[in-house]
């Protein structure tokens, strides 16, 4: 289940005065049925805020792929979304197995997904490369055995 804790308006800590709308979603492991619910909710919000179709498309694809990654690999996790006037920052945090070789993980077609997952049409090794393609900035911090944090920034 995705539990939205609602949107909250916060001021960035850097005193820039930029207001950021925060959303938080919990993504459960192996829950393909509801995967995509968080990105769908974010998409709806972005439409209400009048972001351009292309920006919304990039954001929702990047977030959907990230969500799926947490479902398949991360054992579930938390998606936090910050929306400001000119950019969206998506922070995906899981406490899964971590990524052993980040360079390899970023390669198109590389996947460690199980056969079961592949049979469901996922695990083609396009997740991270696709996220990178859609985003303006991508930071991936991962430690084997501890988990992974992916910060995706998409700017208008």
């Amino acid at each position: 289940m995705h539990n939205s804790e609602g949107l909250k308006l916060e001021n960035k800590n850097d005193n820039s005065g930029v207001e950021v709308l925060k959303q938080r979603y919990e993504v459960s492991a192996d829950d393909f049925a509801s995967a995509g619910a968080a990105s769908a909710a974010v998409k709806k919000t972005l439409k209400q805020l009048g972001f351009s179709p292309d920006f919304i498309r990039r954001t929702s694809i990047a977030m959907y792929e990230g969500e799926i990654n947490m479902v398949i690999h991360g054992g579930g996790g938390v998606a936090e979304v910050g929306i400001s006037e000119n950019q969206v920052t998506i922070t995906l945090t899981d406490e899964g197995p971590g990524i052993a070789d980040i360079n390899l993980a970023m390669k198109e077609g590389f996947s460690t997904a199980s056969d079961t997952v592949r049979e469901m049409g996922f695990g083609a090794g396009m997740g991270l490369p696709n996220i990178k393609k859609q985003s303006d900035n991508l930071s991936l911090i991962s430690e084997v055995g501890k988990g992974t944090t992916l910060v995706i920034t998409i700017a208008t």
């Binding site: 949107l7 308006l9 209400q48």
Partner: peptide
């Protein structure tokens, strides 16, 4: 958009 963000936060 900044008005929209504020309104959306109020809505939520």
């Amino acid at each position: 958009r900044s008005t929209a963000i504020r309104k959306l936060a109020d809505i939520e």
